[in-house]
Design a protein around this nucleic acid. Structure first.
Lengths: 117, 117
DNA sequence: CGCCTGGTTCGATGATCGTCAAACTTCTTT
DNA sequence: AAAGAAGTTTGACGATCATCGAACCAGGCG
């Protein structure tokens, strides 16, 4: 539900961004969300309203490892990199993912959120 | 939607089965569904109405590999092994999974189904 | 300018995972 | 009883993956 609302908001405010790579298939989406570190990143992104500074999205791993995970999330089409105020941010492409796998982000993040409470 | 209805049916007809291992966390569920062979197994299980003979659930891999994947699905709590007419069957624990991760199976299988059409 | 913060890229390493063949069990069938 | 079909287990091999440190590339600020 949270993600669904997020999808609407981001659909409204999304910059064109023109040519960004398409969201990957369900296979690759699941592979991307399967990792604990990456799932936490996505969970925090939802918590933050769909967009956040990289630094705030991880804990317990080095920044080179974090950059590696960001890349995988981006290549799966789950997030995109954008620059706000000169600092790099990650944005959750909730609406795009929902087009390929309706309800997936909601189910996954919801379960993760409940497991974190 | 298909899975949701399936959950209801299986909830009705499920044998007690008493002490079966609990469904794993979202992490392990995603890890189990991430593999192409296993996702296809689950997809075919849904197609078959929630229960099928092992043999009908895979193609292109040896039966030892298939047995390995069945084990992983079982350990994640996604399926259970039951014997019908003397032959081993795999049953999708749709309702149990839906308790831990509501909507997950629907989203994943739905996307997989659409990608297979 | 020089320094620090925030991210990325590039090997390298260690662990995990998917795959197979072979041996074994059980049930069915002839 | 013998033969076959269906699944599982084990051990081994190759590939993929997560992690790290180090070097590198921006901006922002002293």
């Amino acid at each position: 539900m949270i993600v669904k609302l997020l999808s609407e908001v981001t659909r409204m405010t999304a910059q064109p961004e023109a040519d960004q790579l398409p969201v990957a298939g369900i296979q690759q989406l699941l592979a991307a969300l399967q990792d604990p570190v990456r799932l936490e990143m996505v969970r925090r992104l939802v918590d933050a309203g769909g967009e956040a500074q990289c630094k705030l999205l991880y804990d317990g791993v080095g920044k080179s490892t974090a950059a590696h995970h960001f890349k995988i999330l981006r290549e799966a089409g789950i997030t995109e990199r954008l620059t706000v105020d000169g600092t790099v941010h990650q944005r959750l492409r909730a609406a795009d993912v929902d087009d390929v796998a309706p309800g997936l982000l909601d189910a996954v993040v919801g379960a993760a959120q409940r497991a974190t409470d």
